[in-house]
């Protein structure tokens, strides 16, 4: 088994699982969103790792270069990053409204208040 050849993917999985762990274990809504962002950034790294070609160059065409890295994942991730921040902002806006309605951003507090209604 070529460990060096799969190292990138394994680290990405570690990062992904770190984000996932924050999302499911933390009760604070802001921290959950930061966890989602960690997860998202690790997916970006996975895509860009797949686009790399050995000895390839940056995909801006020049006369004297023949091997380029794969530009297609770059395009997908480039737009995904900006979309990601826009959707993160939407999530954070919801958190701000939840805080204004419940006075807390901790999941347990919110559940308790909902049950006491």
């Amino acid at each position: 088994m070529n460990v060096a050849g799969l190292y990138n993917y394994w680290i990405v999985i570690l990062l992904m699982m770190t984000g996932f762990y924050v999302v499911i274990s933390s009760g604070n809504l802001v921290k959950k969103i930061i966890g989602l962002n960690l997860f998202q950034a690790s997916v970006f790294i996975l895509y860009i790792s797949m686009g790399k070609v050995m000895n390839g160059a940056v995909p801006i065409l020049r006369e004297d270069v023949t091997t380029y890295s794969n530009p297609l994942p770059h395009v997908l991730i480039l737009t995904a990053i900006v979309v990601g921040v826009a959707t993160t902002a939407l999530g954070l806006a919801l958190v701000v409204r939840i805080r204004e309605a419940y006075g807390s951003v901790e999941e347990d507090d919110i559940h308790r208040q909902d049950e006491s209604l």
């Binding site: 860009i48 790792s49 686009g51 790399k52 070609v53 995909p59 890295s69 770059h74």
Partner: peptide, 8 residues
């Protein structure tokens, strides 16, 4: 940058 994705 290391993985050649300068735009990203």
């Amino acid at each position: 940058v290391v993985l050649d994705a300068v735009d990203v």
